[in-house]
Design a protein around this nucleic acid. Sequence first.
DNA 1: CAAAAACTTGACTATTTTAGTCGGGTATAT
DNA 2: ATATACCCGACTAAAATAGTCAAGTTTTTG
Lengths: 141, 141
Amino acid sequence: MKLNTKSRYAVMALADMAVFSRNNAVSLRDISLRQGISLLYLEQIFLRLKKNNVVKSVRGINGGYILVKSPKDLKISDILLALDQKVKTVGCKKESKKSCNGKSTKCITHHFWDELDIYINSFFENKKLSDLLKIERQEYK
Amino acid sequence: MKLNTKSRYAVMALADMAVFSRNNAVSLRDISLRQGISLLYLEQIFLRLKKNNVVKSVRGINGGYILVKSPKDLKISDILLALDQKVKTVGCKKESKKSCNGKSTKCITHHFWDELDIYINSFFENKKLSDLLKIERQEYK
DNA sequence: CAAAAACTTGACTATTTTAGTCGGGTATAT
DNA sequence: ATATACCCGACTAAAATAGTCAAGTTTTTG
Ligand code: FES
Ligand code: FES
């Protein structure tokens, strides 16, 4: 049960922006250098963040990205959602008639995993980007 | 963020045992038929459950497996642990000096993922196998 | 004893997912 | 003009996953 790097880097990059932007756009190049994330990979990630309205872009020479919401209002779940990373610990969909094992009845553990999904998602729902910064600010210059 | 099938099938199979054993050993063949899980795959899973003392085996003709603890006392985390599925949402190890991005300092989001891991693990720590059955019993014959 | 049921074990493999890279754009400030 | 930085689809190497296979051993029962 691992988070993929895309989600992790997204959160990392947005946290970086929250720390280093002073109301101006932050370029991916800077984020890449500070956080040690491949620039090309960041581009791919920010494409989706932009499409899902988490950031907006400024093109041209002093361009970069800007957070749409303030870190206080940006839920971590918004970030994960932008990257299709809704937590779904098992493949079995709530809606579909078919259960995970192909049978028509739900498997014996179905409800349990549902409960787990809700539990984890609520963690991400209740955390804001600003919550990360509070804790890390002392350690990180 | 998905659970692998090994862990899911393990929980499923043990729940099956809890329901269908009447103090006698339950054969993998029966579990396989009831739950629709490949027998060969179950063998692989139970090997580990046995090594980690979650079940014990009875060989020979009316053999099978028996839960070591009662469902009331068997934590879901014990099951996951037996399958090396400790929840570790990011690759970065607590102990190691190296952080996830290869730098010597921990990344800006490190603490957050730590918190998440603890949160999720506590879910598994606090759930017992018997908790699954309570809920499912009505739905499942 | 023989045969069948059921556990034991390591190795092997196809498929899928992940974690990126690449190439060729377009917009804009100076 | 030109450098900087976003834009976007397609591609790929490597790792993880989900499972199979082969070749056993042990124990019960007829
Ligand atoms: S039927 Fe939903 S998890 Fe198995
Ligand atoms: S340094 Fe630990 S998660 Fe990045």
